[in-house]
Design a protein around this nucleic acid. Structure first.
Lengths: 199, 199
DNA sequence: CGAGTGATTGACTTAGATCAATGACCGTGG
DNA sequence: CCACGGTCATTGATCTAAGTCAATCACTCG
């Protein structure tokens, strides 16, 4: 989600691109804010460090994710961002965005709507992760991810990645899928999953 | 967090209050959007139903939480909201907010900043819940929740509630705390927890 | 003074993590 | 064109961390 079609052309045009190699840092806590970022490829983590120096991961963003949105409203970054895999990002200048928003309320509203939507997504994933049973968790996830017909889900990326999203090991996820299929609760064809009625 | 000090007085003044009894519904999918809500007391859940009619919890809000923010940008609600315990909410009218934002970019920005901040919080809780070990999870949580000194955490609410937040059973949480204390990694005094150096 | 709830700890069980092995698939370089 | 190395998908065997059930104590509230 969060492809960057929310950005008005005028900003998109001026957006620079930056490539990072695995381990390279994009910004650090205290750096003055230059802008916010969209991940075009790779994987970026936001980190804080606790008092003992242990890293606390705040967010792991992948392809298509927008991040550091809150930096728009701060002078300096409040965490570090490092590439955990080779990555490229687009940079949307803070000043350009803010002045756009000030001048064009509709654009501002579009941005707010986008963030509000991401918040919904994040919150529903939180509820999902609080479900203890792997079976339930997978079923609910499929229910949420189901398309318009409410039955068909096309899994994005690899199963391994989906497993990760669900807070499961890949093995556990494979087993749950296999089991659901055996029980006739789902049908699988490649990366398509169909939910069946269990009455 | 998210106490309602973000609302400009003019809106706060006009905000109605509504009391709900456990099980009572605040709005349903498809209802026209009247406004967004702040929970003054109690507990409210947002729900969707999957095609088999099973409820999918999207969010559980408690005292102080703002919710249905995204409804500002929609004509109708996209989920149900029901009180899971007796609750009172304040209602901020959609039209009043939108016209405020259109006329006062600074207010709009404050709102966006608030949501962006909530997004950060939600995302960092997601990372937390993806940590499998209860020990690690609790330690990281304490690290994140630590106050300015980076060492002292005052637990809000009951331990049981915190356990719930962390995706742990109360028992598991008690045990982890007891264990951390025994190992000298934390110190507890009532609802204050102090992180100690483990070097 | 009970009734209700949170905090705590013990005993037991199990779901899911971990470790391991195999097959399918894909790109790459000789 | 094919062998080889890498990754994903899958399944089996095993182990343990955390859930579940249960009992006790402390507290608060009417």
């Amino acid at each position: 989600m969060t492809t960057t079609d929310w950005v008005p052309v005028e900003i998109a045009a001026g957006a620079k691109r930056r490539m990072l190699r695995a381990g390279e840092s994009l910004f650090r806590t205290g750096d003055p804010v230059h802008g916010i970022f969209a991940i075009e490829s790779g994987r970026i983590q936001m980190l804080r460090y606790d008092i003992q120096g242990r890293p606390l991961v705040l967010y792991t963003g992948i392809q298509g994710d927008l991040f550091a949105e809150a930096a728009l409203f701060a002078e300096t970054y409040h965490c570090d961002a490092v590439a955990v895999a080779d990555a490229t990002v687009r940079i949307f200048s803070k000043s350009a965005l803010l002045s756009l928003f000030a001048r064009d309320p509709a654009a501002a509203q579009k941005f707010t709507a986008l963030i509000a939507h991401e918040l919904i997504t994040a919150r529903s994933r939180l509820e999902l992760l609080n479900i203890r049973s792997a079976h339930e968790r997978v079923l609910r996830h499929l229910g949420l991810a189901a398309g318009a017909d409410g039955r068909t889900v096309k899994l994005p990326g690899t199963l391994k990645e989906t497993a990760e999203d669900l807070g499961l090991t890949p093995e556990a996820f494979y087993r749950v899928l296999a089991d659901l299929e055996k029980r006739g609760q789902i049908e699988r064809k490649d990366d398509l999953i169909k939910l069946l009625d269990t009455t």
